[in-house]
Write a protein that binds this DNA or RNA. Structure first.
Length: 600
DNA sequence: GCCGTTTTCGGCCCGACTGTTTTCAGTCG
């Protein structure tokens, strides 16, 4: 059992203990151990074998045997005992706003509610008001929250889906099986309903024998998955622990990229592509690109050796790496007189037109990023010091970062105050001196208060290189977020508006109207708009990024990392919000060699 | 339940808000 799975079991135990009403500190210790195991690179099986699991911070004498059992057997008898008391479905209730551990337990013990469906039924029958402490208003809040969760039912964030899909591709590759991402994950949709992989198949091999070789067959590994063959689509469908299926599609060498194009879609783009193909006497089918009048059977032999050009033909002894090169897909575009369109913008009609005209504009690319300007450290709610974040940034190949700890009146976070500012700036300067070739900007993420003023006075903000202004409380419509954001944008010290919509995917809708006005204001004041890449935010969403771009707004793509490992999440915002919106690199401030508004 | 000790027990994340009360428990950031 791998790190992620162990961490997941530990978190499940922690949540169940919390619902049981156990000591909060005990509950938290399970979460801490999970974080520690997940973010480490320990060889768990080795440590378990040597009895050294307590070397892991957060794992003590009580957790050691529990973790060892998970690693060695893939399950936990302790967890099984807990689930006998409280079904795991009760934990789904915790995702609903207004339901915490106490309420979840009450709902389960009083009404037997053990799933979101149960909750839905109880809300509709108004069974909840009348329980101790529950009234009409509580029911309303729960119903609203449940509706938001239901909007994302059966979907997971790209931030969860992409790394899992990539790790499956990597593990298949280790078994000499070549596969590529297709479908929603390849298009980098903000949430996806399935993980689709296209697997390369030799003519003499069957999908089932590949599957056997893959190690994904139940029983072949501890992470056994339910699987079934879907004959209509020629694919295997697996259940995963993520709430979305994994689907393995198969194609031979010559049909690989036509099939990848088909499976990547989206369907309205395939319609357009087909139309262009017909103009050239070609037909796009699920199995390949074929000459008009040709049968599907013929198509199954693949098109590259048939209607393909000489350079589109694979060499006789092509290596997997050669075949996996997406430039072969580009050749398909060429065959129908289109310029290649990156998967993330194939849904955008303006790119179809640009493609037909042979002028697809460049999109901002991960390699364009020169720095990350929204990061937290131990100075507020981050888990690492400034220097550790600098080293992580250097590891990402950046030339600069901005340290932007919270300046907030949220009491739980001890952030940057007027009194602590001197000391904070001093430490940033000290780290800067140790890394002369790398720029460490000083900054804060300052709270926009209820009246639109900022938590720190202007004279403090004036001392910082980067000021991100964000709303952290009363984000919904009654908090009048639009007016507060515009007021913050008008402040000349504010460089960036942080996570403007304030949404949390699947939990909180955030500001749902009026953000056009904020974009107008930002375009006028020159304030950059953040694209926050945290997988549960992905804020600003694509459609509003595209709108801002049309108004001339500049963007800052940021990780909002709270740990060194967190810097890597920046790609989710980049792919899902920036690239899908069709943003070129020059509209992203942190593609510049230095921040334009900082002098000296 | 972990950790780090002033070594075997106390600290660990705290305060505002809210819907429900009729004095406060529970949630949230």
């Amino acid at each position: 059992m791998d790190r992620r799975e162990v961490a997941h079991l530990l978190r499940t135990i922690g949540a169940l203990l919390e619902v049981k009403g156990e000591d909060p500190f005990k509950v938290r210790s399970y979460g801490r151990a999970a974080d520690s195991i997940e973010s480490s690179d320990y060889d768990l099986e080795k440590l378990a074998g040597e009895g050294r699991l307590t070397d892991i911070p957060g794992v003590g004498k009580n957790l050691e045997p529990k973790v060892r059992e998970m690693i060695l057997t893939g399950s936990s008898s302790y967890l099984e005992r807990l689930v006998a008391e409280i079904p795991e479905g009760v934990l789904d209730l915790l995702k609903v706003p207004g339901i915490g551990p106490k309420t979840a337990r009450l709902l389960y013990t009083a009404l037997g509610i053990a799933s979101l469906d149960d909750l839905d039924a109880a809300l509709k029958a108004h069974k909840i008001q009348g329980l101790p402490g529950m009234g009409r208003k509580r029911e309303e809040i729960m119903a609203e929250g449940l509706a938001e969760i239901r909007r994302y039912a059966g979907r997971i964030s790209i931030g969860v889906a992409l790394p899992v899909a990539e790790s499956i591709v990597a593990s298949l590759r280790q078994k000499s099986i070549a596969a590529a991402l297709v479908g929603e994950v390849r298009r980098a949709e903000e949430t996806v309903s399935a993980l689709d992989l296209l697997v390369l198949k030799n003519p003499d091999e069957s999908p089932s024998s590949i599957l056997e070789r893959s190690g994904l067959v139940p029983g072949a590994s501890s992470s056994a998955l339910e699987q079934s063959w879907d004959d209509a689509h020629g694919r295997y469908v697996f259940g995963t622990g993520l709430g979305v299926p994994l689907r393995l599609h198969f194609a031979g060498m010559n049909a690989f990229w036509p099939r990848a194009l088909w499976l990547t879609g989206p369907s309205e783009f395939l319609d357009y592509f087909s139309k262009k193909a017909r103009e050239r006497g070609l037909v796009l089918t699920e199995a390949g690109l074929v000459r008009e009048g040709e049968t599907l059977e013929a198509a199954r032999t693949g098109f590259f050796g048939d209607v393909g050009t000489a350079e589109a033909r694979f060499p006789k002894n092509a290596e997997i790496e050669d075949i996996m090169d997406a430039r072969f897909e580009d050749l398909l575009f060429g065959m129908v007189s289109l310029s290649p369109i990156p998967p993330e913008v194939r849904h955008r009609k303006e790119f179809w037109e640009a493609s037909a005209a042979g002028k697809v504009p460049p999109l901002v690319d991960p390699n364009d990023l020169r720095g990350d300007i929204h990061l937290h450290t131990l100075w507020s709610d981050g888990v690492a010091g400034i220097e550790a974040m600098v080293q992580a940034a250097i590891g990402m190949g950046y030339s600069y970062i901005a340290i932007t700890d919270h300046a907030t009146d949220m009491k739980m976070i001890r952030g940057i105050t007027h009194e602590r500012l001197d000391e904070y700036l001093r430490e940033i300067r000290q780290v800067q001196e140790k890394y002369p070739g790398f720029r460490v900007y000083s900054g804060v993420e300052v709270d926009i208060l209820r009246d639109g003023r900022l938590y720190l006075p202007d004279e403090d903000l004036a001392r910082l290189d980067v000021v991100i202004a964000s709303i952290h409380h009363e984000i919904d419509s009654k908090g009048d977020g639009v007016r507060r954001l515009i007021k913050a944008a008008m402040n000349p010290h504010v460089d960036v508006l942080g996570h403007p919509a304030g949404r949390l995917i699947g939990r909180r809708a955030g500001i749902v109207s009026g953000l056009e006005e904020v974009l107008e204001a930002a375009a006028t004041t020159g304030t950059a708009i953040e694209i926050n890449s945290s997988p549960d935010r992905l804020d600003l969403p694509e459609n509003l990024v595209a709108l801002g771009y049309s108004k001339g707004v500049r963007f800052a793509v940021c990780s909002d990392a709270h740990s060194p490992g967190g810097l890597g999440t920046i790609r989710y915002g980049l792919l899902t919000c920036a690239r899908r919106a069709g943003i070129p690199p020059e509209y992203v401030v942190n593609t510049k060699p230095a921040l334009p508004w900082v002098t000296g």
